[in-house]
Amino acid sequence: MEIIQDWLNNNSQLITTYALNILIALVILYFGRKVGKYATNLFVSMLEKRSVDKAVGSFLSSIVYSLIMVAVLLMALGQLGVETTSFIAILGAAGLAIGLALKDSLSNFASGVIIILFRPFKAGDYIEAAGVAGSVKKIEIFSTTVNTPDNKVIIIPNASITGSSIVNYSREEKRRIDLVIGVSYDSDIKLAKQVLTDVVNADERVLKDPAPNVAVLELADSSVNFVVRPWVNTGDYWPTRFSLMENIKLELDKAGVGIPFPQMDVHLHKQDN
């Protein structure tokens, strides 16, 4: 007992220092955990305000919390006198190795986060991206599922979407239909324009504002081409386009306005032998 008592007396200052460091390390862990939870909850609230999917928000918040706790743990170990440089180097090397192994997956993950945060499109929108056109069925962290008009299901990696131009046909409430109608040169141009205008105005789905535009576009090789540009609600785009094409043909036929077809003149030259 005397040996232990002597050792305690001789090392009292060292014991006090270590005890104090342990206490400070525990305080760091305790308050670090509190700060981590607060910061994570704040991050989740921010994601909820941006209408981010709950599953995605939970995944991202767990990453944020883990990063904070790693930093807190390193601070606590440093307070105990543990050399943290080697830990940081090991973590860095492990992170680099994992990043290289999962390069494509991490790229898709990052792209998924960008899509969810900035919302260039949402479920139900008709888009064209990565060489694919269709209605968005669901958006996930690593991929986006699209249904084509002929009901094929296509799963596109998110990195392919953010790495290309995205055309969202559903974002705006109105769309313009662009038609080019050719009539023969011997037709009455004013009559043809009037027929086209009447057909457009007769369709109730065509909007009055912006007003539709019917005008001569060009004097082509075998026809006078009119541009017909009515505006419709986005949901009425394809039905209105199909209907206008049919009615334009019927009404031009009734008015006797010819629609030319490609022609080729062949000239034969007799060669004397």
Score class of each variant (00 low, 15 high):
residue 242 F to R: 13
residue 227 V to E: 00
residue 247 N to W: 05
residue 128 E to V: 05
residue 118 F to K: 10
residue 88 I to A: 15
residue 66 S to C: 12
residue 36 G to F: 05
residue 192 A to D: 07
residue 107 S to T: 10
residue 260 P to G: 10
residue 141 I to C: 05
residue 165 S to P: 02
residue 172 E to S: 13
residue 51 S to H: 12
residue 172 E to F: 04
residue 148 T to G: 06
residue 55 A to T: 13
residue 228 V to M: 00
residue 51 S to I: 06
residue 2 E to V: 09
residue 245 M to E: 12
residue 83 E to N: 15
residue 103 K to L: 14
residue 273 N to A: 14
residue 258 G to P: 00
residue 242 F to K: 13
residue 241 R to Q: 13
residue 198 D to R: 14
residue 253 D to R: 13
residue 177 I to R: 01
residue 140 E to L: 09
residue 122 K to G: 08
residue 91 L to H: 09
residue 44 V to Y: 01
residue 216 V to R: 07
residue 81 G to I: 07
residue 183 V to E: 01
residue 118 F to C: 10
residue 17 T to P: 00
residue 244 L to W: 01
residue 170 S to A: 14
residue 190 K to L: 12
residue 149 P to S: 06
residue 214 V to F: 04
residue 134 G to T: 03
residue 134 G to S: 07
residue 21 N to A: 15
residue 91 L to G: 15
residue 185 Y to I: 08
residue 59 F to G: 05
residue 105 S to Q: 12
residue 69 M to N: 09
residue 12 S to V: 12
residue 69 M to W: 00
residue 265 D to W: 02
residue 148 T to R: 05
residue 250 L to M: 10
residue 61 S to M: 04
residue 129 A to K: 01
residue 18 Y to P: 00
residue 44 V to W: 00
residue 215 A to Q: 09
residue 219 L to P: 03
residue 50 R to T: 09
residue 243 S to R: 10
residue 204 E to R: 11
residue 270 K to H: 13
residue 185 Y to P: 04
residue 161 I to D: 00
residue 1 M to C: 10
residue 92 G to W: 02
residue 52 V to A: 11
residue 145 T to P: 02
residue 242 F to G: 06
residue 174 K to N: 05
residue 4 I to S: 15
residue 78 G to S: 10
residue 117 L to D: 07
residue 221 D to G: 03
residue 87 F to M: 12
residue 197 T to D: 07
residue 155 I to M: 11
residue 237 Y to L: 13
residue 108 N to K: 12
residue 114 I to D: 02
residue 111 S to V: 09
residue 56 V to R: 07
residue 216 V to W: 04
residue 3 I to V: 14
residue 6 D to H: 11
residue 152 K to T: 08
residue 228 V to L: 03
residue 234 T to C: 00
residue 38 Y to I: 15
residue 89 A to W: 02
residue 141 I to F: 00
residue 5 Q to Y: 02
residue 199 V to A: 04
residue 156 I to A: 01
residue 226 F to L: 05
residue 152 K to Y: 00
residue 37 K to E: 11
residue 52 V to H: 08
residue 131 G to Y: 05
residue 73 L to S: 11
residue 168 N to D: 12
residue 46 M to G: 11
residue 39 A to L: 14
residue 266 V to R: 11
residue 206 V to R: 03
residue 270 K to N: 10
residue 141 I to A: 08
residue 163 G to Q: 04
residue 264 M to Y: 08
